[in-house]
């Protein structure tokens, strides 16, 4: 997403650098062929994106149960969300707690392992791929089920603890622990941001480290004064991607929890509650309002992250 905003800026110079007379005869437009090739995209953007977007905004001001036509209720849905739906406010809390724990912990794991793998050594490619494997499998239903089994009372995690004489808890059915089981599942998939960190680490010029070493900087100092600042744009990128991804988590909440947000609503993630309202209670207008509040929230958080960038992200020179 970070690259997306950078990209929209980069579009303009692309056109101005198209020097006239370089093969493309000036005045000869290719509007016809372009229109033909773009027609699927135009149909899609209008039919699958633009119209649904407007429709959803309209629905959020209506009450609609699929049986009778939507009827206008003004801001009632939005008002109800914040004044008389404690489960909704609770779902915000559950989601916020999940986002602010899972995203940073996942990135911490990603960065630590990336640093471990950064130095070229035999088997690096295989190691990197194997660390990435959980990211490939992790969003699947199969892994969510396996995860639940792993942390079940009789699961291998408690079996492992028993080796050390520790009696494990019922991690999955205990409302205090189940969210940490889900956070662990997110952390488990640190491979994707790790690969991006590795690519970022490769970009840091070796001379910087050599010069710092000559000046007597130890490993910690080199990490703090070279690696971290040089990597900060990549950290920002990963942070935005992971936080937005965490907000949208659905499968782990539905499958590691009991599917209804339980035990005692401890896994009532935002998207899960939205799903319940829309597809179990058929409250399409109410759920649409939930979606719009979510988008607004995501926008504000992404905005804040980019705003904070000027204090901690180092953009070279």
């Amino acid at each position: 997403m970070a690259s997306a905003t950078a990209e929209s800026v980069a579009v303009r110079p692309d056109r101005s650098t198209a020097a006239p007379g370089l093969g493309r005869r000036p005045g000869k437009r290719q509007g016809g062929p372009a229109f033909i090739l773009l027609s699927p995209w135009i149909i899609g953007t209008v039919g699958v994106l633009a119209i649904p977007l407007l429709y959803s905004l309209y629905l959020s001001f209506t009450s609609y149960d699929l049986l009778s036509a939507p009827h206008w209720v003004g801001f009632a849905n939005y008002r109800r969300l914040f004044t008389s739906d404690p489960r909704y406010l609770h779902s915000i809390q559950v989601t916020a707690e999940y986002v602010v724990t899972s995203a940073p912990l996942k990135l911490l794991a990603a960065l630590a392992v990336a640093l471990l793998l950064a130095r070229p050594r035999r088997g690096q490619g295989v190691y990197r791929a194997l660390f990435y494997l959980p990211s490939l499998l992790g969003t699947s239903v199969a892994i969510a089920i396996v995860w639940q089994g792993t942390f079940d009372t009789d699961g291998p995690f408690n079996g492992f603890l028993r080796l050390f004489g520790i009696r494990g808890e019922a991690w999955v059915s205990d409302p205090n622990y189940v969210r940490w089981v889900i956070v662990a599942l997110a952390m488990w998939q640190f491979g994707a941001p790790m690969v991006i960190f590795l690519a970022g680490l490769k970009q840091i010029p070796r001379e910087l480290y050599e010069a710092a070493e000559v000046d007597g900087a130890g490993p910690w100092r080199r990490f703090r004064s070279i690696t971290l600042p040089m990597l900060s744009p990549v950290i920002l990128f990963n942070l935005v991607v992971e936080m937005i991804g965490a907000f949208q988590a659905f499968t782990p909440a539905q499958l590691v929890g009991d599917g209804q947000g339980g035990p005692v609503d401890s896994t009532l993630f935002y998207t899960l509650y939205l799903y319940q309202r829309a597809f179990q209670f058929q409250q399409m207008g109410y759920a649409a309002a939930m979606a719009w509040v979510m988008i607004a929230g995501l926008g504000v958080i992404t905005g804040l992250l980019f705003w904070s960038a000027k204090y901690w992200v180092h953009y070279g020179d």
């Binding site: 699958v48 994106l49 119209i51 649904p52 977007l53 429709y55 959803s56 629905l59 699929l66 937005i244 949208q248 998207t271 939205l274 829309a278 597809f279 399409m284 759920a287 649409a288 979606a291 719009w292 979510m294 988008i295 995501l298």
Partner: peptide, 11 residues
């Protein structure tokens, strides 16, 4: 985000 399109697309 796909959540915003989910309901209208479904309808």
């Amino acid at each position: 985000p796909k959540e915003i399109l989910l309901i209208p697309q479904y309808l």
